[in-house]
Nucleic acid binder design. Structure first.
Lengths: 151, 151
DNA sequence: ACATTTTCTTTGCTAAAGGCAAAAATAGTG
DNA sequence: CACTATTTTTGCCTTTAGCAAAGAAAATGT
């Protein structure tokens, strides 16, 4: 079959693999520096101040099981970063939201995580940054739709 | 500071994050379909037929600790996919190499994993594939050098 | 020659990440 | 009110991963 395709595919596979490993290390470092577990950091990244979330919402948006989420929230709750209250309308639901302490931390986290990436990207041109964006965006789309079709 | 940079940085952060998650799921599915643990699959991907490797070599090239590698190799050894013999020149070293069974499997694995990516990439243009390659390559370089500087 | 140090691997232990299945609690419905 | 469905939690298990100490072998100093 298409030789060029095969070549490109395997090169991209390799690169993606390396990128993955590096990003994982990067996340781990960042989380550790802020006294968080990686899973906690990932969870905090998606909760917005003022909003409240069910366990399920968080689980689906993080692509994890509800039980896993319960444990992650346990940790954040123990650190007084999130509140967990029973919904009044439907008491099966939990309503997870940031405490003041949590809001402060998340604000700092987002700021510093963006800075970290800004630091990485600052020495290259706007065009190259766009290339990165476009390339990763395309790839993300492909992998994502592939997953949906093959899950 | 540079508003454009910040915007691009945070968009790229988000995308990379999603890509990472999807690729992880992809690897997991693929490994499972072939009766392997993800770590085992990752290890097999880097050993070439006919060559032999020390535990340390594998550990550094996978960016894992030697002890972790010992365990991964234990698994592969139990499945009779790799041989583990003491080096004659320096008996401290282990020499890890693929068995016949391992070679057959790795061959199939590489073939099918490339096909999987070929499948994902086949419907887009050669130019778009190049865009993906270039974008991810740039990003990988940045994250990688950042890691070296900040580790 | 032998004691010490260094190097490579393994083992024991621990933590974190994650899922499955059953239980608990609540809501909705015949 | 009995039954079913939904949401979360709990118990238990697996996988991934590292650290520190032990073991084994080589290199080196005296």
């Amino acid at each position: 079959m298409d030789m060029k395709l095969k070549q490109q595919a395997s090169a991209i596979t390799e690169l993606t693999f390396d990128l993955l490993r590096c990003c994982k290390a990067k996340e781990k470092m960042f989380a550790k520096d802020h006294g968080l577990k990686v899973a906690e950091f990932r969870c905090l990244r998606i909760v917005e101040a003022g909003k409240s979330y069910s366990v399920q919402e968080l689980a689906t948006s993080m692509h994890l099981s509800p039980s896993r989420l319960t444990r992650i929230i346990d940790g954040l709750f123990a650190e007084k970063l999130v509140d967990r209250v029973q919904s009044i309308e439907d008491r099966r639901f939990a309503k997870i939201s940031l405490t003041n302490k949590g809001q402060t931390l998340v604000g700092k986290l987002k700021e510093e995580y963006a800075d970290l990436h800004g630091e990485m990207l600052k020495d290259i041109s706007v065009e190259d940054r766009d290339k990165i964006y476009n390339g990763i965006s395309l790839m993300q789309g492909l992998v994502s739709t592939w997953l949906v079709r093959n899950a």
